[in-house]
Design a protein around this nucleic acid. Structure first.
Lengths: 198, 198
DNA sequence: AGCATGTACTAACAGTGTTAGTATGTCAAG
DNA sequence: CTTGACATACTAACACTGTTAGTACATGCT
């Protein structure tokens, strides 16, 4: 996980991992079944950082909490989301997770079909959000203003006026990703609440 | 694109592609700069299938049309979404796309910041949705009922009651992904509309 | 006729995951 | 203390991957 966070998931090779551990690549096979096994473990390790202690909360608070916590995980480990959809999601661990979430929704009054729908919609948003991250800027800070400036400079004069306006807007002030996430999350949760009362 | 659709993006190797074209791998380099070039082209080819002829439509209709069309593309080419976030999104082509969409929103009355927000929220959902697809079932049809049955059978008796209920629900009838997508899309669009009037 | 261009080829390189076979250290039983 | 079993590390190799250098050939223009 340290290796993936620091150097990117593409740097997680058997030989590189071995180098970090002071060991040759082949020796790793005494401990794991193969690279798939390694990546499965990595995925579960990341997923275990998502808060699903949802008992006793209102369904909306529970879903919001889960979503915010999931986004933090995906922001901290940008490789996690990509890892998830390149492999099977049907492990025991994720089944428990699914059951927890569905339980909250069904107990709140959603039909089984509606609960499945709500789950899918919410997770689509959650999993999709941190992917909408522009490629990391080179030598700038982490607020993205430098990158916005860079994009702005690359836009041909007058050809893309609206993109230019938006880039100009965010070259001055940082973009608050967390706030943007919660804005969209609120839209979805409010909509689900409305759909609950027919 | 045929190769990626039929055999999966991981089968798109220089040697395999050459085999399909009746040519050795090295010969491909007379036509493309490298594999990155190839994948960029593949991505743009897929993206060009998204309908962005949005002029003259109400902003909601325009966004809905774009979203539905994008989902169809991602459903038809499951590798496309993954390709997009593994490479730089700042090409001329995608810049035109971005400008088009932002233009619709800003003209509809969104501030530049709100338009950027709306864009991000919408695309998070769009890009995230087709990833929430369970691994393809082996010998079953495409409606997923066989897979739901299979999952149901694999759930330990009584351990995950809510997951079991949902699996049971959908082992009887097919799951309409398109309807589910439009349901969530509607929630978001309605929410954006409400936020437009403060 | 000669030459330039485009395109295919073979061979090779460094890198990937993985396995077989071998050596080494540690620790428990006799 | 010796012996043996076990865990673990190693080297060497295999079949892949993307990519480049150098070469051959066929087409078509001057």
């Amino acid at each position: 996980m340290e290796l993936a966070d620091e150097a990117g998931i593409e740097s997680v090779t058997m030989r590189e991992l071995g180098r970090r551990l002071g060991v040759k690549a082949a020796s790793l096979y005494n401990h794991i079944a193969g690279k798939d096994d390694l990546l499965d473990g990595l995925m579960n390790l990341a997923l275990s950082g998502i808060d699903i202690a949802l008992d006793g909360l209102d369904w909306k608070d529970a879903m919001r909490r889960r979503a915010v916590s999931a986004r933090e995980v995906f922001a901290r480990h940008p490789w996690a989301a990509g890892l998830i959809d390149s492999r099977d999601r049907r492990g025991r661990e994720s089944l428990a997770y699914v059951d927890r979430v569905l339980g909250v929704l069904i107990r709140a009054g959603f039909s089984t079909a509606d609960a499945a729908n709500a789950f899918l919609v919410l997770d689509s948003y959650i999993y999709g959000f941190e992917r909408q991250r522009p490629a990391a800027p080179e030598g700038n800070g982490t607020d993205g203003t430098g990158e916005a400036r860079e994009i702005l400079a690359a836009i041909p004069e007058g050809e893309y006026p609206f993109a230019a306006r938006v880039a100009a807007e965010f070259s001055g002030k940082p973009f608050d990703r967390e706030a943007a996430f919660e804005f969209g999350l609120g839209l979805i949760l409010d909509g689900l609440e409305r759909s609950l009362g027919h």
